[in-house]
């Protein structure tokens, strides 16, 4: 993965001098060539295993000036650089924006400092900008390409929402988000009386996705599925702490114990009280924890406009007191 030389490299200025020897590991991706003289799997890992040994096994945690770079601790791609675009930590003339937190500095001839410069070491400050992968060398406020949602991201209500979008009432959800035709039919209407409560999914400190339900200690710490509701909603629905409840959306439903907290508060949306149901996600049908319903029986199949991230953080449900699932 580091890359090695299959043929030697001679100094173009002095052909009798060999700069790189055949069979040697590359010291970095700068030595990659397109003439067949280098074998390498992935340029970004070049420099991770050099002639000096395994750079990833280095364990020197010294940190000059408390900059937090730890350049001799393992290896970071690319080129052991710890912060990409780090030239942006300096002003146009190459002085650090904050001298007490210096990463790099232009010393008049080259870039010096505590991190590996993400710019040619001798590129003069006003000649080359910090964002070296943009032709203009600076960051972009306007996204003209690559993103579907741009130039600026706009706010849209979720596809399932207690209220219409006040700015553009006819637009439902993000118009450039991905929703398959059949999935549209599984969305509750805006402001639907059948699904009056906003729901959100989240994780607990004691669990990692669906992995740690197989872990004894984590399953002792958080043993069973629950939903979290406000004191106000619990009162309105006659639900006491620890009671079984049924929660359902237009797509599916689950049974869980109710945890009643002051942490979850009713929201005021367009002059109307909207209660929130919180649904932690960590349970399933195998493992050391008790069996529980997966949260995604409730959630909608919507991919966000740019990254296709599912809209699992905002959807509409109903809730009622229950006697629990039939075993």
């Amino acid at each position: 993965m580091n890359g090695y030389l299959v043929s030697e490299v001679v100094d173009p200025a002095n052909p009798s001098r060999m700069t790189l020897q055949q069979g040697k590991q590359l010291s970095g991706f700068g030595e990659y060539r397109d003439d067949g003289g280098v074998v390498g799997g992935c340029w970004v890992y070049s420099g991770s295993f050099t002639e000096a040994g395994n750079m990833m096994a280095r364990r020197d945690n010294s940190d000059p000036d408390g900059a937090g770079m730890y350049l001799n601790w393992t290896f970071a791609w690319p080129a052991n650089r710890r912060i990409i675009y780090n030239r942006a930590s300096c002003d146009l003339d190459g002085k650090p924006w904050d001298a007490s937190r210096k990463l790099l500095e232009w010393d008049g001839a080259k870039w010096t400092g505590y991190d590996v410069p993400d710019i040619s070491p001798t590129a003069k400050p006003r000649d080359v900008g910090p964002f070296i992968l943009n032709a203009e060398g600076v960051g972009r406020l306007f996204a003209r390409q690559l993103l579907r949602d741009g130039p600026f991201p706009s706010h849209y209500e979720p596809f399932e929402s207690p209220v219409a979008n006040l700015v553009a009432p006819k637009v439902r959800g993000n118009p450039v988000a991905r929703v398959f035709e059949d999935d549209w039919k599984q969305l509750a209407d805006i402001g639907s009386a059948d699904f009056p409560y906003a729901a959100t999914t989240y994780r607990l400190t004691e669990h990692f996705h669906y992995w740690t339900k197989n872990n004894h200690v984590n399953s002792v710490l958080q043993p069973e599925s629950f939903v979290e509701i406000s004191v106000e909603l619990a009162e309105e629905k006659g639900i006491a702490k620890g009671d079984w409840v049924r929660v359902w959306s237009k797509r599916g439903g689950l049974f869980a114990k109710a945890v009643v907290t002051k942490r979850i508060k009713p929201m005021l949306c367009d002059g109307r009280i909207v209660h929130v149901v919180g649904v932690p996600i960590h349970w399933g049908f195998v493992g050391a924890a008790r069996k529980g319903f997966p949260a995604n029986v409730l959630t909608p199949f919507v991919g966000d406009a740019n990254m296709e991230t599912p809209e699992f953080k905002a959807f509409m449900v109903n809730i009622e007191a229950s006697t629990g699932p039939v075993a």
Binding site: T205, E206, H207, W211, T212, N214, N215, H216, N218, G287
Partner: peptide, 17 residues
């Protein structure tokens, strides 16, 4: 370590592994 990392031994020893 967080509560997940601190319990790593039990993911190695998990009965459902």
């Amino acid at each position: 370590l967080c509560p997940k990392g601190a319990a790593l031994r039990d993911i190695v020893k998990s009965e459902t592994r």
